[in-house]
Design a protein around this nucleic acid. Structure first.
Lengths: 221, 221
DNA sequence: CGCGTCATTGATGTGCATCAAGTGGTGTGG
DNA sequence: CCACACCACTTGATGCACATCAATGACGCG
């Protein structure tokens, strides 16, 4: 949330995030086709967003954790165009979008904050397009792990250890790979001593090694 | 632009789009790292946006035509994170973003319009992720052609004929394919009588055939 | 007219998908 | 508390779609 707000502004913003909603593991926060009315700020838990086509194709478009906002896809057509599924029991703030628009007309910092959140999502997706369009399997998985651990670290978790909240299949869907390839690539990293993997627990032994895989040029090692 | 505005509002919006800029073919409207200050509405011409990494990777993230807006990537960090290159001589409206924010505080329709533009870009990128993550070469190219011709048709051009403003290599970069694969896939479509291709001129002979390739399920044919 | 850029086409190679078998962890009901 | 079923995961064998390498052809521009 934006900083340096006056008392009354702060209070009005708090009203927006007053309503909470719990979402059980495996259940949707919203689905493709649902009427759009609110953005959701994740308080606790972990989500995936994905689009499913009629012909059975399914693409995970992102994984979201505490502090991140989901639902932006719904603004343009007034309906959501993807599913948001909780990967573990979660709680979100329900932020009615009409209230966000109303208040952001008066609070400049909120207005700009909203714009930045949307722009950040666009830039993030550019990165995913680069990954999907030009990287090999090892590079994709390395980039994925580095991104996850970096976001977790920013939330006070370990830089080197993480618990995957999603299956190999979901990782594969996100990275444009099959689950077997994800599994094999993990095994390869283990052989090379770059990570330890025990089920969904991952410990990064050699972060430089991972960075090296993603981008050989800009690495000292 | 939004509809049903009052006279004075309309006039103030016109002030925002007053400044024009011409961009010669092959030259950048902005580059990665440039300070962000404005969004650009394309009046005439055709652009590509792309990200280049230090290690020589290059990914086209989109092609934009008249009526579309570019520059949204710059909001989050106050600097652009991709290059926007004109693929033909072009003219854009320079829309200072601080003025957009100022005016959209007063004109609700403008505010919501800006939000929709950003949301639309997010949804578009979801579609590209689906394409890059789960489609085969033929499906990608068919989807690309259908998308282009649909956008051109919405601007009053033919439903069946189009001129590609970009090279095979740029198409390939966008679709996550090599230029040879793009070329071969075009040739295959020609053999099958789905399209006629003469250099960059493409005539779609059998649009149902293309839709069939993208999504076999939901096609009558 | 000659050169550079873009495109086509063929031959070969490879990274990942696919198919298939088996393992381990988890939860459930007897 | 154990037997069983189920699911997620791993690992191997094989195949294929697309990449790579290479040669040639077609425009367009100075």
């Amino acid at each position: 949330m934006p900083m340096g707000l006056s008392e009354p502004d702060l209070k009005r913003i708090e009203e927006i995030v007053a309503v909470r909603r719990k979402v059980k593991r495996g259940t949707p926060l919203f689905r493709n086709g649902d009427k759009f009315s609110s953005l959701y700020a994740i308080r606790t838990g972990f989500f995936k967003t994905c689009i499913a086509t009629e012909d059975g194709r399914d693409q995970v478009t992102g994984f979201q954790m505490a502090g991140e906002v989901i639902g932006l896809d719904g603004i343009v057509s007034d309906h959501h165009t993807c599913d948001a599924i909780a990967l573990e029991d979660a709680e979100v703030c329900v932020m009615p979008f009409d209230k966000i628009e109303m208040l952001s007309r008066e609070v400049n910092a909120l207005q700009h904050h909203v714009h930045k959140i949307m722009s950040r999502e666009i830039v993030r997706e550019h990165g995913v397009m680069l990954l999907l369009g030009s990287m090999r399997a090892e590079e994709r998985l390395a980039a994925f792990l580095l991104n996850l651990v970096q976001r977790l670290h920013a939330r006070g978790f370990s830089q080197s250890e993480l618990v995957l909240r999603m299956t190999r299949e979901e990782i594969g869907s996100y990275l444009g790979l099959k689950l077997e390839t994800v599994s094999r690539t993990f095994s390869k990293f283990v052989e090379e001593g770059i990570v330890e993997v025990k089920q969904r627990h991952v410990r990064i032994l050699n972060p430089e090694g991972l960075k090296m895989i993603v981008n050989p040029q800009t690495c000292s090692a």
